[in-house]
């Protein structure tokens, strides 16, 4: 790593002011993504601002749901009784990700900002529109077996967020609290937080310069309580998803009253599928319904040479996840 200066911020105001003074500075919390990228020289920062002392903590019951401080670790959130009881799919998305050591270190706020595992992004010898805007995208006709098939563009086919947690958050209507200092906060639904690549794949979220993620709010809902996260990967643990599905169902007398569906591994961003949800609601909880929903979810897929398999794999992943939830 190239050297940098290190500063601890005691308050959000201090952190955002430091960041304003040095726009190329970066915040550090768990550091598991940032230090990896800095060692690989994919990101360089003259200053790191440690935000671990900020009061963005706690996992609390509110009258509408749960509020999770952005600085809580993946381990603590994944194993928290309130999360396990009310949002099993969210808990599973955390505990099926990374390794126990990384989950002890990584914060849930930082998790949302991890970067793509596209090999062309990770290797500075190659052009990459995400890393060097306008340089090109060798992934389009290169090794794209683990890349996205929904929401992609001619500029980029990376799954910009390669993880699991945001997929579950997308399914269950999570809202992020963001702050730019001065105590001014705004609320952004997770499904509006990520930006599709279009012609600007280097702009990945709606976070403004220096803005911090303060908390994640999850609203209580029946389908969230009856939910699961199913992850399919090349080895059975400690690997990114090829495809995944976060689903929740409210089934009464055999009929689906409410449904939540999001897919991982296939979208340029965590992929909420309202098409699949519309196909499910009002229908009997049967395999035929699940198959129709899966077909609807993948309808707009734009696969390339090596990731064509994901169209079928993602449908099967979604069907199996729906079967599991319906079976209770």
């Amino acid at each position: 790593m190239n050297d940098f200066s290190y500063t601890q911020a005691a308050t959000a105001k201090e952190a955002t002011t430091l960041r304003k003074d040095t726009p190329t500075a970066a915040y550090i919390a768990g550091g598991t993504t940032l230090l990896d990228l800095m060692k690989a020289h994919l990101q360089e920062h003259p200053q790191l601002i440690d935000i671990n002392a900020l009061p963005f903590r706690g996992i609390e019951q509110t009258k509408d749901g749960l509020r999770i401080g952005a600085l809580e670790t993946m381990s603590d959130v994944g194993e928290h009784p309130l999360v396990l009881q009310q949002f099993p799919a969210v808990s599973q998305s955390l505990l099926l990700a990374a390794s126990p050591q990384l989950r002890n270190m990584a914060t849930v706020g930082g998790n949302l900002l991890q970067r793509t595992r596209c090999g062309y992004f990770r290797d500075p010898a190659f052009p990459c529109n995400k890393r060097v805007p306008g340089s090109g995208c060798p992934a389009q006709d290169g090794d794209n077996h683990n890349l996205a098939i929904l929401g992609v563009s001619e500029s980029c086919i990376a799954n910009s967020y390669p993880g699991d947690f945001s997929v579950a958050l997308a399914a269950f209507d999570a809202v992020l609290t963001l702050e730019k200092g001065k105590g001014k906060q705004r609320h952004v639904p997770l499904t509006d937080f990520y930006r599709l690549p279009d012609s600007t794949p280097h702009i990945e979220t709606v976070l403004e310069p220096g803005e911090l993620i303060v908390a994640i709010t999850l609203p209580t809902a029946v389908p969230a309580q009856r939910s699961t996260y199913l992850k399919v990967r090349e080895r059975s643990s400690y690997a990114y998803a090829l495809t995944s599905a976060a689903v929740g169902l409210d089934v009464q007398a055999g009929t689906i009253r409410a449904a939540r569906v999001a897919l991982g591994g296939v979208g340029a961003q965590p992929w909420r599928s309202r098409e699949a949800e519309r196909t499910l609601v009002g229908q009997p909880a049967t395999d035929a319904t699940f198959r129709a929903a899966a077909a609807a979810a993948l309808q707009g897929a734009q696969p390339r040479e090596h990731n064509r398999y994901k169209v079928e794999l993602a449908q099967n992943t979604l069907v199996r996840a729906l079967q599991q939830v319906a079976a209770g």
């Binding site: 290190y6 550090i28 550091g31 598991t32 230090l35 990896d36 381990s75 990384l102 002890n104 270190m105």
Partner: peptide, 13 residues
């Protein structure tokens, strides 16, 4: 008391 990766931890932290 928690298992942690020393390679992704800054000594100052």
């Amino acid at each position: 008391g928690r298992r942690t990766l020393a390679c992704l931890t800054l000594a100052v932290m």
